[in-house]
Amino acid sequence: MSVDPLTLLTIVLMGLATYSTRVAGLFLVSRVPAAGRVRNALEAVPAAVLTALVAPAVLTGGIAELAAGAVAGLAALRLPLLAVVILGAATAGLLRAAGL
């Protein structure tokens, strides 16, 4: 099994690029004040990033994605995470199979 040198170089550079984004927080987090607008902003990161990850797929995908997103959101109010995942994916799969 072979490893091409240029392929290896590209892979290493990709790894460094990715790791730099993951480790950057170490250099940023000490600058975050304990209260105020910057703190509010940081506390909003999980909800903001999670929303940004799903909103385009749910809102512009079509009826199947919109319905599956609604099912997942409602299921999350009551059911454990695994049930949310299964119900959401099953809804998307079934509605797509039905041609929606």
């Binding site: 999670l50 994605e65 599956a68 949310v84 959401g88 998307a92």
Partner: peptide, 19 residues
Amino acid sequence: RYGFDFAFTALFIGLLMSF
């Protein structure tokens, strides 16, 4: 085709709702 991609979307929605 089978909705596997939506498993991740649903996971993130479920986690989002926990906030």
